[in-house]
């Protein structure tokens, strides 16, 4: 009950912030529309709607990290958490409360991206459902990364690290904007080590019904999700103890 109450509060804080809505929903949709318009004039395989949309949904998740990290960092800085630390809420309640509401928000963001892509020419198929379900492990990774960043950085630092650095890292290393084969070398090796490329490829594969390819990408995403969640929980509990 108490952790659901806290989770509801976190959802309201995020969804009532117009900047969150603007970036979280508006930006991926604008990119989708813009790149589709470019594609209509200068066809590029990478920006074909059935390739672009799954990639944009993965890129959109980087804003979920920003929401999560900003909320936690703001709560820490505003003494709101100090108040809550004197209530019966436990560390586990806080973690669930911060992470739980972001999952439906992330899924909602993905669904909206696919819905917007349909009038732009995306085939309406059952594979969209698989792609939406398939994004959950990567969403968990992004939410946990937000918990981690919010636990150790200030609001200002979160803005720079999650708002600028992470979104760019995700954009460049996911292979959404350009083919990683074109760059190759160390850049490609780094991209393959990190989960963004795998998430993007898995989404593309799920949408196109190539499930064996999708399965080949899921292991790194799950490993990253589990490890980052564990580290984030430890960091949050540690900062709670330090308070």
């Amino acid at each position: 009950m108490k952790r659901i109450t806290f989770a509801k509060r976190c959802a309201k804080e995020i969804l009532r912030d117009p900047i969150n809505l603007g970036f979280g929903l508006g930006f991926p949709i604008v990119l989708l529309l813009l790149l589709s318009a470019i594609q209509a004039n200068i066809p590029v395989k990478l920006f074909a709607i059935d390739t672009l949309t799954p990639g944009i949904t993965v890129f959109g998740l980087s804003f979920i990290t920003l929401f999560s990290a900003t909320l936690i960092a703001k709560d820490r800085e505003s003494a709101f958490l100090h108040r809550l630390y004197t209530t019966p809420l436990t560390g586990f309640d806080f973690i669930i409360g911060y992470m739980l509401p972001l999952l439906p928000i992330a899924i909602g963001q993905t669904v909206i991206c696919y819905l917007v892509a349909i009038p732009l020419g995306l085939d309406l198929s059952v594979n969209i459902i698989y792609a939406v379900v398939g994004i959950i492990p990567m969403a968990v990774f992004n939410i946990a990364l937000g918990l981690l960043c919010g636990s150790i950085f200030t609001v200002k630092q979160v803005g720079g690290i999650c708002g600028a650095l992470l979104t760019n890292l995700c954009a460049y290393l996911s292979g959404v904007w350009f083919d990683l084969e074109l760059v190759g070398g160390l850049f490609k090796k780094i991209a393959i080590i990190l989960p963004f490329f795998h998430a993007s490829e898995m989404e593309k594969a799920l949408f196109s019904g190539e499930f064996s390819i999708a399965l080949s990408h899921i292991a790194p995403i799950i490993i990253y999700s589990v490890v980052i969640t564990a580290v984030a929980v430890l960091c949050f509990l540690n900062q709670m103890k330090r308070q």
Partner: peptide
């Protein structure tokens, strides 16, 4: 400091 949830 003011410890309230600002968007609530």
């Amino acid at each position: 400091e003011t410890a309230v949830a600002p968007n609530l």
